[in-house]
Simulated scan of single mutants.
Amino acid sequence: MKTWICLLRAVNVGGTGKLPMAELRALCERAGFSDVRTYIASGNVVLRGTLPAQEVKTVLERALEARMGKRVGVMVRTPQEMQAVLQGNPFPDAAPNRVLAVFLDAPPPADALDAASGRKDERLALGRREIYIDYGSGMADSKLKVPAASAGTARNMNTVAKLVEMARE
């Protein structure tokens, strides 16, 4: 059995995509996963199963689509990959709640940041399958738009660290 960290896209954000975490845990268990745990109501799941990453993604996306009536993207990572995201944070001097990793299914293109617009004091960097964003003075007033990040889902470094910790328990 392998441990997987699954990040759901657009769940319980801004009043759309409401999915109580108890229902999410039950959905994952019905899909054949065990030791299912969620963290905060934004679609973070740690679970165990025998399937490879791509199949975990496919099974969860199908189950979520059946439940939600729309496609819900799922990014799947191993605990080691999530630890590497933490260690690869190019902005370790910044507040961890203001540094986000936007998780993607594939590596971002080398020119992914060229199309970013609305930039103020934000710093951006590419990761392996992530785009890092340091929101400097905060996200509330940011006008930043990063087209390459639109298909991803973002988590701050505090959440990434907590998911790594949960995966190791």
Rank of each mutant, 00 (worst) to 15 (best):
K18Y: 09
P20W: 02
M21Q: 04
M21D: 02
E23L: 05
E23P: 13
L24Y: 01
A26Y: 09
A26M: 11
L27S: 04
L27I: 05
L27D: 03
E29P: 07
E29G: 12
E29W: 07
R30I: 03
R30G: 03
A31W: 01
G32E: 08
G32W: 00
G32C: 12
D35Q: 14
D35C: 13
V36Y: 07
R37Y: 04
T38M: 02
T38Y: 00
Y39F: 11
I40Y: 11
A41V: 06
S42A: 08
G43R: 07
G43W: 07
G43Y: 07
N44I: 11
N44Y: 03
N44D: 06
V45K: 05
V46W: 03
V46D: 06
L47Q: 01
R48T: 13
R48C: 13
G49H: 00
L51F: 05
L51E: 15
L51P: 04
P52R: 14
P52M: 10
P52F: 07
A53M: 12
A53R: 10
Q54E: 15
E55P: 01
E55D: 14
V56N: 05
V56P: 02
T58W: 05
V59H: 00
V59Y: 00
E61V: 03
E61C: 00
R62K: 15
R62I: 00
R62A: 15
A63L: 00
L64P: 02
E65L: 01
E65C: 02
A66Y: 01
A66K: 13
A66N: 08
R67M: 05
R67V: 02
M68A: 14
M68L: 13
M68E: 12
M68N: 11
K70L: 09
K70C: 11
R71T: 09
R71F: 09
R71N: 08
G73A: 15
V74T: 05
M75Q: 14
M75Y: 05
R77D: 07
R77F: 09
R77T: 08
T78W: 14
T78A: 11
P79H: 10
Q80E: 15
E81D: 13
E81L: 11
E81P: 12
L86Y: 11
Q87E: 13
G88W: 09
G88P: 14
G88Y: 09
N89W: 10
F91S: 05
F91P: 04
F91T: 09
D93N: 03
A94H: 05
A95V: 06
P96L: 10
P96Q: 08
N97V: 13
N97T: 14
R98S: 04
V99H: 02
L100A: 07
L100H: 14
V102T: 15
F103Y: 14
F103R: 11
F103S: 04
